[in-house]
């Protein structure tokens, strides 16, 4: 789907974007936050569900938030956290004495997803001189690997998988950020990556 050079440039761009995301996360979450260097790979959409099964454990609940982005750069991000990571995140975001409801938990996941999506996709689109706009993120709590009902993903052709681990001081939060795109968008992306490659030469 991407040439080795395109993939290398994309990895570099994502590294830059994540650098920005780390700084934002640290500032916005009022904590020393680190994001591990993201690993990137691409998958055809048919392998999406299979991939999901490999990245989450059998037994845990999965918090899966989705956020659509539109514009010249468009697609959808999926951010996946397992229940343990969500607990760690919530413990960091809210005072321990506060009575926490499911709504607090959902809000925490959506907030982190929003920050990650906006910083990563926003930075990528800025570097590639593309425009993008973010829709309201939504959240689902899935059990028993109920991935198969993600029907709306059908309109996408490819998945860019960016996996990272966040650490907030003591609390470890492992998340998977997946970027879903249509083939038209992939062509735009390839074109933009080629242009960057030319500028670098």
């Amino acid at each position: 789907m991407l040439t080795p050079l395109q993939q290398e440039i994309l990895q570099e761009l994502v590294n830059i974007a994540f650098g920005s995301a780390t700084a934002s996360m640290a500032e916005l979450m009022e904590a020393f936050a680190t994001l591990s260097v993201p690993s990137i790979h691409l998958l055809p959409i048919e392998q999406f569900n299979e991939h999901l099964r490999t990245i989450v454990s059998d037994t845990q609940q999965i918090y899966l938030s989705q956020q659509v982005f539109t514009g010249s750069m468009k697609g959808e991000t999926i951010f996946i956290l397992e229940a343990e990571s969500v607990n760690n995140l919530v413990r960091h975001l809210y005072p321990i004495e506060e009575h926490l409801t499911d709504e607090h938990v959902k809000d925490a996941v959506l907030e982190v997803n929003n920050i990650l999506s906006v910083t990563t996709i926003g930075k990528l689109s800025e570097i590639m001189k593309m425009q993008t706009n973010f829709m309201v993120p939504t959240l689902r709590i899935l059990t028993d690997r109920e991935f198969t009902d993600l029907r709306e993903l059908a309109e996408y052709d490819a998945v860019i998988i960016i996996e990272t681990v966040m650490r907030f001081e003591r609390e470890q939060v492992s998340g998977h950020l997946l970027i879903l795109t249509a083939s038209a968008m992939m062509q735009e992306l390839q074109h933009a990556l080629d242009q960057i490659a030319e500028e670098m030469m």
Partner: peptide, 19 residues
């Protein structure tokens, strides 16, 4: 306040559902 800070830092919209 945290959400407003995020908006200003990211220069993008954030979403807030009062709990």
């Amino acid at each position: 306040r945290r959400k407003i800070r995020t908006t200003l830092r990211l220069r993008e919209s954030t979403f807030y559902r009062p709990i």
